[in-house]
Design a protein around this nucleic acid. Structure first.
Lengths: 229, 229
DNA sequence: AGTTAATGTTACAGATTGATGGCACTTTAG
DNA sequence: CTAAAGTGCCATCAATCTGTAACATTAACT
């Protein structure tokens, strides 16, 4: 699946430059010139990264950043600020408010991509083609392989995404609804109980034989990947 | 707990500058001038962030970065490169190899700190993760876990919400009616005395064995979380 | 001390919630 | 095109939680 980038930028030249280069590097780029619209789109269909111009008509980039962080949907999406201002105070303010990184115009497309990758490696290691690990489980998103103690584990597509989601957020409890949203997709409707079934299948596949169960059930709250007990 | 920073830098002036500023900002700083030693220390006692000079005698910063990533212990520690080189190709190489960020000398201490924070926000969502503390009790609302003196405490859903409510308002006395309202919900009707039962269950679970009882009964008023006596 | 209201404790039946196996239907691979 | 794999949903069983009432104990008065 392509990495989805939301570009909020009013300068069309830059928009085109970024779009061209990112698409060539196999990203999916959505762009808007207006801050309000950016906020709306971001909440609507959460992207993997947001590139945010500092200077925008109406709302400032800083303000947008703040609002993105405030919204549940977008609070955890990494934000990279694009700006002409090289002066430090602004940079610091941007980072303090919750931007993850900062690229100064003019920037080279290669650097921009490298920074996007660096930031993604943190948030969603799997997107950056990194191997995820949790205890004796490893998940390689390039080869789409899951190993436990060097034994290959076979998972169906849904179980794979489910496990990946857990491994990207170890320890965190997700409700069935949250899981449906982020693993199945925000637009499909399936019974929340169906999650139980897939959890069951995932557990079965993972704990084949010896293995301890790393999926923790939290009654009336959801599930988490965790070395519990 | 203080954030532990490992600084690998051979220029003593910079080392002192960074140390002074970070310690003032309440970080714990370990510093080494040599790459080999840095690798050793990092693996020995894994820090929260590594600040890595680009130009080092013997091993280059780039090579150290690579090796840090290769080692299981340090593979996930965020790395911020410090460098005088402003030229893009190097920056890109650093980021590609696995550095998380990049600060160009001369840098301002404030910016460095802001970048450390930005990077940590990514690595340890726990930092943003709502952890409530009261004396030796901790309640993490992201992982839905309650610990007392590092011992995991199991609570039923209602006891969990009850404790959370108390920990969000430590010291404050709540009547049974208030508790029913905010813990059970304003629309359900249950006997006020039922609160007693849940208080009892919460106390029992929390004070398993040694523990002092932090729930104070206020006769004819209600209950509070409090280190009384 | 004795009285009384308030709180502590316990047991239990009923209600919730999660686990599991089966099944019909869809998608994918060969 | 067929067989195999994957998916979602349901019915059922099992585990756990919940609210209540009954009884015990305590604290605050006279």
């Amino acid at each position: 699946m392509k990495t989805r980038v939301l570009l909020i930028e009013d300068d069309l030249n830059i928009t085109e430059l970024v779009r061209y280069n990112l698409e060539r590097a196999d990203y999916k780029v959505e762009s808007v010139a207006d801050g309000e619209e950016g906020l709306y789109l971001a909440a609507q269909d959460t992207p993997d990264v947001i590139l945010l111009d500092w200077m925008l008509p109406n709302l400032s980039g800083l303000e947008i950043c703040r609002q993105l962080r405030r919204n549940e949907e977008t609070a955890n999406v990494p934000i990279i600020m694009l700006t002409a201002r090289a002066d430090e105070p602004d940079r610091v303010r941007g980072l303090e408010i919750g931007a993850d990184d900062y690229v100064t115009k003019p920037f080279s497309p290669k650097e921009l991509i490298a920074r996007i990758q660096a930031v993604l490696r943190r948030v969603r290691p799997a997107l950056a083609g990194h191997e995820l690990r949790f205890e004796d489980i490893s998940l390689d998103n390039v080869s789409h392989r899951v190993m436990r103690n060097d034994t290959l584990i076979h998972l169906g597509p849904t179980e794979y995404r489910l496990l990946r989601h857990f491994m990207e957020n170890p320890g965190r409890v997700f409700s069935r609804e949250q899981l449906l949203d982020s693993v199945w997709g925000h637009d499909v409707y399936v019974e929340p109980r169906t999650v139980d079934v897939h959890i069951r299948r995932l557990r079965k596949a993972m704990n084949e034989g010896d293995g301890k169960d790393y999926i923790r059930t939290v009654r009336s709250a959801g599930y988490a990947l965790d070395k519990h007990r």
